[in-house]
Design a protein around this nucleic acid. Structure first.
Length: 945
DNA sequence: ATTGTCACG
DNA sequence: ACGTACGTGACAATT
């Protein structure tokens, strides 16, 4: 049995007139008269206070008149013609009623051609027919026709908030002498001078009521008139029978209007305080504002957090959950989608979205790069199958070509902007950072947002095995959670040479594809988002990853400047050197071959030239990787040295000097990478297109590429990086006193390790100690360490044993971490980020051990990622507060942040950046070790180190 | 599409 | 019998 629903319908237009006459002529700080608005606002406030009561409304909407003309004017041209124009200082208050309603995040309905009464009647009947109770908040006598209860349906009553009276059937009978269904007949006879309903002249309330009581209804009374005793009344009843009939039509409410917004959308949720506070502040309603801040008795009191939840297939409303069970989601229906091609249709969707307070959004573009792609359209979803596509850039760029009917881009964006920027409406996306950036380029700052991809990541990171079954892409999520395979992009646009841009796809197919994406996103959100609190994902999602979305989006839009000429120059140098090496290598090999082919190279080196190196891999191919070639070089094989040099140059040239030039965005002149927030299982970011997290630094020749990343004239690049952050975290997490102490004292940690391990420090022992330290972080194996150090496995084992001995805590950490991962299936960072290890119990030793090493590393690497993410999220506000709002954060490279700022601001910005990074774990986690931050600046990235 | 190699933290 | 450090992404050759 469905819990009882209770719909409140507020007659907003009628209310404002009453409020106007009852309240003093207040004006707001801008001088706008707001007396009536204030009255209206307090009325909404009072209603909102009932929101959490057991017998209060579950659904609510405000209904307004739109325009002065309705269908009744077509029937009777004098209808409402007597109305005096509204007072001058009331006129500017009409639009504010809508603003006030929006400020409460309540739906606001108005429909051209119908009066508020008709919409109220239609909604009331529709809701009652579903068994809902309905309260009409009004004192309009016309609406009293609706009061009562049809058997099997819900009850309709009225509420007069000014008199604080509820009106039921007996009250109507008392007022009119007839039951509600006869009220229309009474009204028809008596007429209404205000609305200019003629009625029968000389018949007032008393007479009208008496006539209907005596004869049953209007027609019977009119029919009986000739037999009545002669009187003025009888004469007029006969004479004006038609006027009475016309009046009946005028006072009869139209109860079957199309409902512009489904009733389900009126579902109440918590009222977000921010938009309300902004409204109250703007209009100087300080006493209400104070009550809101205090929280006592305010409508937002019960739920100060963001309401962030869907409306119908709810993801667990804060306080209304018990009332509405989660309905089954209907199967996906492509026919249900709407292609929005007119401004009116668009407005309707936007209004509905405001009402729903949660909308899934997806943008379609001409390409994958958010910083270059053109907008083709936007899709919205408000519930399962309630989705639309708004084409905006279809039909190609040819100005003269015939294009499908579309809302002009600028108009559509102007309408979408308030919705997409509204604090009160949560925008849900799958990888919404992309949409944020596309729309940011059109001047829309999308916020607040939720991201299904990131929700999935916070729940299920690492769940995939070999990339199968645990990814966070939409198609994959849809198949996994919705058992639905969405239309494939390539089936819509084709693939390869035959591919067409999305803007060329016919609208019907585009609508199916695009609206489906929004629909699926909405459904995924409804399914996944409620899992966060149940599965311990809320903390990391709400406190770390979600706040990072707009931050990373802005970094991507900032981009970084690269010196194209310098890159081109380097490229040329590399090419020359490569050509020289190539001929030398060919000469040494005694033949020409493709040096870049490991297969050919292996055959030349090992078969033709006879070097020793051995086969490797199931392919039966010779391995020619760096370690092997270095081995050969050590034996005196000069070819190997040349090949290594050649390889380095080709790598640098193709991956960096050439690719980076191509990556310069022609619109901005800068390089904009794309960060993935779900790219690394540990919680690290990853960078693509281009990858700016692997720019060379280790070799001199590679460093020249870093010098090509430059600041704008008058500016510098500032690089701030955590020093040894993972080792510091290991010292804390494993609780290793000597390591903690060394960090507290600011010692050279590798030297300290060398001292502990070997009893003395020199270049060799420090280098070996460094290797061992990293080995620990990565989950050590005797063979791995042996290979790295060039010693036998048992010697490596002896060193590991000694390390465990000198640094007590490390072994305990490893054992207990593995124990928990084996037991629970996941590891956790200090901030609660989970990484799953589905193969921790694998029967294959190799797989199992691989998982074990990753499981030892994940909490450390992941905690480091959490910390820098927290620093990033706090950085812009901190800089702004210090008057450094123009300092731009450009890049993140795992333990490093790169900024661009005017040269003169380095001294002011450095301590702010340093502090935010060093204190990023606080207050959630108090580390036993300090977080060291090193800062440098210069004209290029290379110079900033 | 997969493999080998190598750039980064 | 295997094949070793954790986490990534891009390119070129090869399938």
């Amino acid at each position: 049995m469905e819990p009882k629903q209770h719909l409140y319908l507020v007659d907003g237009s009628a209310y404002i007139f009453r409020a106007y006459h009852r309240l003093p002529p207040l004006t707001d700080p801008e001088g706008t008269p707001v007396g009536a608005v204030y009255g209206y606002t307090t009325m909404l406030w009072k209603l909102a206070e009932d929101l959490n009561k057991a017998d209060g409304p579950t659904h609510l909407a405000v209904i307004l008149d739109k325009g002065a003309i309705s269908f009744r004017n077509a029937i009777y041209e004098h209808y409402k013609a007597n109305r005096p124009p509204p007072p001058e200082d009331l006129v500017p208050q009409f639009p504010l009623i809508r603003d006030a309603t929006r400020a409460f995040s309540l739906p606001c309905i108005e429909e051209e051609g119908f009066e508020a009464d008709d919409l109220i009647a239609s909604y009331a009947r529709a809701a009652a027919a579903r068994g809902w109770d309905v309260t009409i908040v009004s004192s309009d006598k016309d609406l009293m026709q609706l009061v009562g209860q049809t058997p099997g349906e819900g009850e309709i009553d009225m509420l007069d908030t000014m008199k604080n009276q509820r009106l039921h059937v007996p009250d109507v009978i008392e007022k009119f002498g007839v039951p509600p269904e006869k009220v229309g007949d009474v009204l028809a006879l008596m007429g209404d001078s205000v609305d200019n309903v003629p009625g029968v002249f000389g018949v007032g309330p008393k007479t009208a009521s008496k006539l209907i009581q005596d004869y049953g209804d209007l027609e019977s009374a009119l029919a009986a008139a000739p037999e009545m005793k002669k009187s003025k009344l009888q004469e007029r009843l006969i004479e004006q029978a038609d006027m009475a009939r016309l009046s009946k039509v005028l006072v009869t409410l139209k109860e079957d209007c199309a409902l512009p917004i489904p009733i389900d959308d009126f579902r109440l949720g918590a009222i977000p305080p921010d938009p309300l506070a902004a409204f109250l502040a703007r209009h100087g309603f300080t006493s209400l504002l104070k009550r809101l801040d205090i929280g006592a008795g305010s409508p937002a009191a019960a739920t100060r957090l963001h309401p962030a939840r869907p409306v119908t297939a709810g993801a667990g409303p804060a306080e209304g959950a018990a009332r509405q069970p989660l309905p089954e989601m209907p199967a996906l229906d492509y026919e249900a989608y709407e292609c929005v091609q007119t401004l009116d249709a668009l407005d309707r969707w936007i209004e509905r979205a405001f009402t729903a307070r949660l909308v899934a959004v997806d943008t379609e573009t001409s390409a994958l790069d958010a910083m270059r792609a053109d907008l083709c359209g936007v899709s919205l979803a408000l519930g399962p199958n309630q989705a639309c596509y708004i084409p905006l850039g279809h039909g190609g760029s040819d100005m003269f070509a015939e294009k499908p009917e579309q809302v002009p881009l600028a108009d559509a964006l102007a309408r979408l902007k308030p919705l997409l920027e509204s604090d009160a409406v949560l925008k849900v996306g799958q990888n919404i950072k992309y949409d944020i950036n596309v729309l940011a380029r059109h001047g829309i700052a999308v916020a607040p947002v939720d991201d299904t991809m990131i929700v999935s990541f916070c729940l299920d990171a690492g769940r995939s095995v070999d990339g199968i079954g645990g990814g966070h892409g939409m198609d994959e999520l849809s198949e996994r959670h919705l058992e639905h395979k969405p239309l494939a992009f390539k089936d819509i646009c084709g693939t390869g040479k035959k591919a067409i841009p999305f803007g060329e796809v016919p609208l019907d197919r585009a609508t199916r594809y695009a609206a489906e994406d929004a629909d699926v996103t909405w459904r995924l959100h409804a399914l996944l988002r409620p899992r966060l609190p149940d599965e311990g994902g809320t903390r990391i999602y709400e406190r770390v990853d979600r706040p990072l979305i707009p931050v990373v989006a802005r970094m991507e839009r900032n981009g970084i400047k690269v010196d194209r000429d310098r890159l081109a120059h380097l490229s040329g140098q590399f090419a020359e050197a490569m050509a020289a090496l190539e001929s030398e290598i060919h000469a040494m090999a005694g033949q020409e071959f493709t040096i870049g082919s490991p297969k050919q190279l292996g055959d030349i080196l090992f078969d033709k030239l006879g070097y020793k190196g051995g086969r490797k891999g199931k392919s039966g191919q010779y391995s020619t990787d760096q370690a092997i070639l270095e081995g050969l070089a050590a034996q005196g094989a000069e070819v190997a040295t040349k090949v290594l040099e050649w390889r380095q140059l080709t790598k640098l040239r193709s991956t960096y000097t050439e690719a980076l030039q191509a990556a310069i965005n022609p619109l901005t002149g800068r390089v904009h990478t794309s960060y993935s927030l779900v790219g690394a299982q540990t919680g690290r970011l990853s960078s693509t297109d281009p990858n700016l997290q692997n720019i060379p630094i280790r070799t001199e020749i590679g460093r020249q590429i870093r010098d090509c990343f430059v600041a704008e004239p008058g500016h510098v690049l500032l690089s701030a990086d955590y020093s040894q952050i993972e080792l510091r975290l290991a010292a804390h997490m494993a609780d290793v006193p000597p390591l903690k102490q060394a960090f507290a004292n600011g010692e050279d940690i590798h030297a300290r390790t060398a001292m502990e391990m070997f009893g003395h420090v020199d270049r060799d022992t420090r280098g070996r100690a460094k290797t061992i330290n990293f080995a620990i972080l990565y989950g050590i194996s005797r063979w791995g360490l042996a290979g790295r150090l060039g010693v036998e496995a048992d010697e490596a084992q002896a060193m590991i044993d000694r390390y465990f001995d000198r640094f007590p805590g490390i072994q305990r950490y490893i054992v207990s971490t593995l124990e928990t991962v084996r037991e629970r299936g996941y590891s956790e960072t200090l901030f609660g980020r989970k990484t799953w290890f589905p193969r921790i119990h694998s029967k294959t030793q190799h797989e199992r051990q691989g998982s074990e090493r990753a499981a030892i590393n994940a909490p450390i690497q992941g905690t480091s990622a959490d910390i820098i993410k927290r620093a990033m999220a706090r950085m812009d506000p901190a800089l702004a507060e210090a008057g450094l709002g123009h300092v731009r954060m450009l890049l993140q490279v795992h333990d490093e942040l790169v900024f661009e700022l005017p040269e003169g601001d380095v001294a002011a910005a450095s301590p702010v950046i340093e502090r935010i990074m060093a204190e990023a774990a606080l207050p959630a986690v108090r580390l036993d070790v300090p977080l060291g931050v090193e800062i440098g600046s210069g004209l290029s990235w290379g110079a900033a180190h």
